[in-house]
Design a protein around this nucleic acid. Sequence first.
DNA 1: TGCTTGCTTGGAGTGCGCTCGAACTCCGTA
DNA 2: TACGGAGTTCGAGCGCACTCCAAGCAAGCA
Lengths: 153, 153
Amino acid sequence: MSVQQTRPSADYEVGKYSIGEVAERTGLTAHTLRWYERIGLMRHVSRQRPRTGGDGNGRGSRRRYSDHDLDWLEFVGKMRLTGMPVADMLRYAELVRQGDHTRRARRELLEDHREEVRDRISDLQSCLLVIDHKIETYADAEASNDDEHSQAG
Amino acid sequence: MSVQQTRPSADYEVGKYSIGEVAERTGLTAHTLRWYERIGLMRHVSRQRPRTGGDGNGRGSRRRYSDHDLDWLEFVGKMRLTGMPVADMLRYAELVRQGDHTRRARRELLEDHREEVRDRISDLQSCLLVIDHKIETYADAEASNDDEHSQAG
DNA sequence: TGCTTGCTTGGAGTGCGCTCGAACTCCGTA
DNA sequence: TACGGAGTTCGAGCGCACTCCAAGCAAGCA
C-alpha cells in the first residue's frame, strides 16, 4: 500500500504482471493503463521479449508491470480519487523523474492539493447538512400525510 | 437559503431579477442559466413582455427570475457541488413538477445520493491520510538533507 | 494447421457539463 | 435618431478523461 523511497526486496523493479492482471488489481481498464503510459503519467513499462526474437519493443511485445509500477498506480489512483487533474499528476510525475532535487516542489504540490481536498471535504459536509434537512422535511410531510401544493421541494 | 414548502411572502414567485443579476448572485454564467432552463433543470422562467407588444415570448423578451427560482438554483448548486449528475437532478426536477405524490420518490433519491456523498467524504478522508503521510516523508527527507536515489516518491 | 485468447499500435470517438458564436432584439440615454 | 449594452435564439464547439476500433502479433492447445 505504501509508496516508499526504498524497497527491501531486490525484485521490486522486476516486471511480473500482465496488463490484464494489473487491470484487475487496480480497477483501471487495460485501455486506461496504456493511455497513462502514453501521456507520461507512468514511466515506460518494461516489455517481455517475444520468443521469436526482436528487442521486445515491436508490435506484439507485451508489458510486464513491476511492484513498483503497482505502487505508483495505487498512488495515482488515490490522487485521482481526490480529484487531482491528470495535468497536475503529470507535473508531479515529471518532478519525480527529475530526481531528488525536486522534492521540495513535490511537497509543495501535495500541500496545495491537500488544501483543496480539505476544502472539498468541508463543502461536502455542509451540503450533507442541506440534504439531511431536506430528507427530514420530506419524512415529516409523509408522516403527517399532509397534501399542501407548493412547487418548491 | 432554505428551499421551503411554503413561503410567507406573496411576491415569492414574482420575477424580479435579470439573468445578469442571477448570474452574479449564483456564480453561474448566463449561458449556463439558459442551458439549465433549456434542458429542463429549471422550470420555464417568466418573461418580461416588451413594451412594443407581443406575448413576451418572442425573440427579445427577457427572463425575470423570482426568489423561488433563486432558491431552486441554490439547491441545484448544492447538489452539483456534491457531484450529483445533471441527469439525476433532472429526474428530481421532474418529480417536483409531477406534484406532491412523488415526495417519497424524491426522498429516496436524496437518501441514495446522501449515501454517495458520505462514501465520497470517507474516500477523501482516507486519501487525505495518504497525502499527509507522503508530505511528512518529504519533510523528513528535506530536514535530514539526505540524498537517496529512489525513483519512487 | 487452425483456432482462441490476450495483447500490440495509432488514431478516432464518446459522454459530460458546460461554453461560445452569430445574428438578432430591446431599452435607456444623448 | 443613433448608439451602446444587456438580453434573445439555436446550434456548434470545447476540455477532460477516458474508451473504443481496426488490423495485426504471440502463445497455447487440439
